[in-house]
Simulated scan of single mutants.
Amino acid sequence: MEPVFNHFDEAGNAIMVDVTDKAPTFRTAVAEGTIKVTRPILDAITGRTAAKGDVLGVARVAGIMAAKRTWELIPLCHPLLLSHLSVDFEILEADCAVRATCTVKLSGKTGVEMEALTGVTVALLTIYDMCKAIDKGMELGEIHLVHKEGGKSGVYDRE
């Protein structure tokens, strides 16, 4: 069965999906991604010695702010009243990398996958921005949805 793309009207014009008649349900999404860095950058992040300040603290706030503004960045996304939003980091010593995870929750009529993905992406971009004076060879990657629940499509867990 072909997937139905509901962001287009009968004439093929892009539209915002009408969720007026949908009942609110609990929805959550978790996304993650990584940034591979050099040892001097990882040391500056963990030692809090980067010239621009607390890299992970600033990246956390940037990710939260971006997720809250997803509707302004991604065409056709609905403005949402988020009830929970967090950005967390894990230092991956063996890989010389940082993993960012963004969790978003609400009770509403539309999902929060785009908010979680936006939060992770901007958090990683902020790490890049704050550390590029040390080395510009950092690599962002593996950005993906880990978990989602709620709504018509139910639960999704990435394998």
Rank of each mutant, 00 (worst) to 15 (best):
I41F: 00
K36H: 05
D18W: 01
V58M: 03
R99Y: 02
V4R: 04
H7R: 03
A66F: 02
A50P: 07
R158G: 05
L76I: 14
E93P: 13
K152L: 12
V87P: 06
H78V: 14
L124S: 07
A14W: 00
V120N: 08
R48H: 07
E72A: 14
P24F: 03
V58N: 04
V17N: 06
N13R: 10
R60T: 00
L124C: 08
L125F: 02
A133C: 06
P79C: 14
E115G: 11
K148S: 15
R99G: 09
E149A: 11
T38V: 15
T126P: 01
A97N: 12
G150W: 00
P75L: 11
K152C: 05
A31E: 03
S107C: 15
L56I: 06
V122H: 03
V104R: 08
L106Y: 01
A94C: 09
C96N: 13
D9G: 02
P40G: 09
G150M: 04
K109C: 09
S153E: 10
G150S: 03
V155K: 10
D95N: 07
A51L: 14
G151A: 14
P3M: 12
T101P: 10
V98T: 08
H147M: 12
E159M: 14
G57D: 00
K132D: 03
W71R: 02
V98F: 01
A116C: 08
M1H: 05
